[in-house]
């Protein structure tokens, strides 16, 4: 699904050049649940941004869903993000003046789905998250866990191939964190590749593979027990 070969990325701030990623080689298969760990400054967010087509890499080859990603127009990147990727953020990033249902429906708006249909679909997804009764509520009326569940519903409404989660539990207490992780695991079990960036060990250990980043390089890759692997617990879908 995702193949990175010798990815480099630098940022230029004024006259300084900051070399953030110094040659990343990585292969993530379809349906994997992977976590990326590292201290701040290790380049994990940059890596996620490149994976999520939110930023361009300088060097190397990035293949996403059998397609090589090169410098492309914003419009094309937006379309790929919309069709292929779903994002979950630490700070939820819901739009404050839209209610839960409208937030969930927004990606479908950019797919030009009719209003009624996308609101209906959004309600279904909110129902799956156990938030049907909260559909009309504004984000500031929801708890952190609820907000993150709305964000997750929004990320999967377009039925993407990959979910990219940037510290999805960073702003949540431990009980809610477990709930959110279970949701992400469920999503993963439906066949969607899930990549989680985290700095929490217990969260990372709930994934199949932990990729440790240090100073822009992959320091180690730890294979967890295959409790989540497709072979053992593949739940038939639909």
């Amino acid at each position: 699904m995702i193949r990175l070969q010798n990815i480099h990325k630098s940022y230029i701030t004024g006259t300084n050049k900051l070399h953030v990623l110094k040659g990343i080689d990585l292969h993530i298969k379809e349906g994997e649940l992977v976590s990326i760990m590292g201290s701040s400054g290790s380049g994990k967010s940059t890596l996620l941004n490149i994976l999520g087509l939110l930023d361009n890499h300088d060097e190397g080859v990035y293949t996403l869903n059998q397609e090589e990603i090169k410098a492309m127009s914003e419009t094309k990147a937006a379309k790929l993000r919309n069709n292929l990727l779903g994002f979950v953020f630490q700070s939820f990033n819901l739009i404050s003046f839209k209610n839960a249902m409208e937030n969930v429906a927004l990606p479908l708006y950019y797919q030009k789905v009719a209003r009624k249909k996308r609101n209906k679909t959004a309600l279904e997804y909110l129902d799956k998250m156990g938030l049907k009764d909260w559909a009309e509520h504004m984000p500031n009326e929801l708890s952190g866990g609820q907000k993150q569940r709305v964000a997750i519903a929004r990320s999967i409404i377009t039925q993407p191939k990959i979910i990219l989660a940037d510290e999805p539990t960073g702003a949540l207490d431990s009980a809610t964190s477990v709930e959110v992780m279970n949701l992400l695991k469920e999503i993963n079990q439906s066949g969607i590749t899930v990549i989680i960036v985290t700095h929490e060990n217990d969260i990372a250990h709930m994934t199949d593979r932990i990729i440790n980043l240090k100073d822009g390089r992959i320091e180690s890759i730890i294979e967890n027990n295959k409790i989540n692997s497709k072979e053992t617990i593949r739940v038939p879908q639909e």
Binding site: A78, K79, R81, N82, F87, N93, L106, P107, R154
Partner: peptide, 8 residues
């Protein structure tokens, strides 16, 4: 946010 979820 809009751009991340696919706004052109």
């Amino acid at each position: 946010i809009r751009k991340a979820i696919g706004a052109s």
